Amino acid sequence: MPRSLIVLAGLLALAFAQSTYTVQRGDTLFSIAQRYGTTVEVLQALNGITNPGQIRVGQVLKLSPQPSTALLNRRTDLPAPIEALEWPRQTVQGNVAVLHLITAQPVSGQVRFLGADYPIQQNRVLLPVPALQDPGVYPAVLLLEGYTVRLDIRVVAGSFGRYILQLPPDREALLQPEKLRAERKKVVESCDWNRSQQWQGNWHKPVDSNRITDPFGTRRSYDKGVTYSFHEGLDYGVPVGTPVRAPADGLVGLAEPLFVRGNGVTIDHGDGVCSGFWHLSKILVRPGQVVKAGDLIGLSGNTGLSNGPHVHFEIRIRGVPTNPALWYWNAP
């Protein structure tokens, strides 16, 4: 092989093996993502960046997750046939703590965490940590047949922005608490939590864009800072009419105009995992329709409680919103 090709192959191998990158003058998060075959959302999630436009020269960015047994708790004192139980040493607000049971055969049971029950499915349990959960250590009780195991889940603070939103007068009229509660209930109930897992592998982005106008978890106020809620998904700032596609396999749960969320679609992906797409200009699927990753489900818009053209994309686990960016590179 010519020496030039050997050098090129070595450089390529080094680039692919690289786990960090130091920001240079002229870099953007988008250009770095393209260079290393990743996405803006992944870089944001790995580095706690809430505003993709705010990176600085000399900043060291993680390019990929660093899986390590040192990052996991492990117990081996469980009853047969369970060989071990593993779970993360810490979980950021809005992320998912995944409990893995190492066993050669299926195990049934559930985990009680933060006042809710989460079933063992495929020898794992998905425990969503609410984005507003105070940092601290919380008990998780694993209930097996005739056996109880108490675990500790450590929640650490995320890095979230804080915004006061100014809405046009006609849109402020949508902020009616009773209608907000009713619509949220409808969204959550549009998915069957007992459906088996439909997706395989990591998820895809719902739109062909890296322009995130509002990341997950942003603390938001509509009343000039008197009270704050949080942003339950990712907002992609795209023109009206941009194709919106299913990020993973599933079954359409809801496809209709909503009061606050505008034209909306939910997809039931199984295991209690449901995705939502709001403010569409056009809905192109119907409830009960089976969709595959990449299928067209609608067109972006500016309907409902929206202050400009965009697509809001969210992922809930049994009704609890979680950070969608994590599902692009490390879907449970």
Results as ranks from 00 to 15, higher is better:
residue 9 A to M: 13
residue 12 L to F: 07
residue 16 F to A: 10
residue 29 L to T: 11
residue 31 S to E: 13
residue 36 Y to T: 03
residue 36 Y to R: 00
residue 39 T to D: 08
residue 48 G to H: 07
residue 50 T to H: 14
residue 54 Q to A: 15
residue 70 A to T: 14
residue 74 R to E: 12
residue 80 A to R: 14
residue 81 P to V: 12
residue 83 E to A: 10
residue 85 L to W: 01
residue 89 R to S: 11
residue 95 N to S: 14
residue 95 N to A: 14
residue 96 V to F: 02
residue 102 I to K: 09
residue 103 T to Y: 08
residue 111 V to A: 02
residue 112 R to Q: 14
residue 121 Q to L: 15
residue 121 Q to Y: 09
residue 125 V to L: 11
residue 136 G to M: 10
residue 142 L to A: 04
residue 150 R to E: 15
residue 152 D to T: 13
residue 157 A to E: 13
residue 158 G to Y: 04
residue 169 P to M: 08
residue 177 P to G: 11
residue 182 A to V: 09
residue 185 K to P: 07
residue 187 V to L: 15
residue 195 R to W: 14
residue 207 V to S: 04
residue 214 D to A: 12
residue 215 P to N: 04
residue 216 F to Q: 01
residue 218 T to M: 02
residue 233 G to W: 02
residue 238 V to Y: 01
residue 244 V to F: 13
residue 244 V to E: 13
residue 269 H to S: 07
residue 272 G to S: 09
residue 277 F to D: 02
residue 279 H to R: 06
residue 279 H to D: 06
residue 282 K to T: 13
residue 288 G to L: 04
residue 293 A to W: 05
residue 294 G to E: 11
residue 298 G to T: 07
residue 309 P to C: 11
residue 317 I to Y: 10
residue 326 L to G: 03
residue 330 N to F: 09
residue 331 A to V: 03
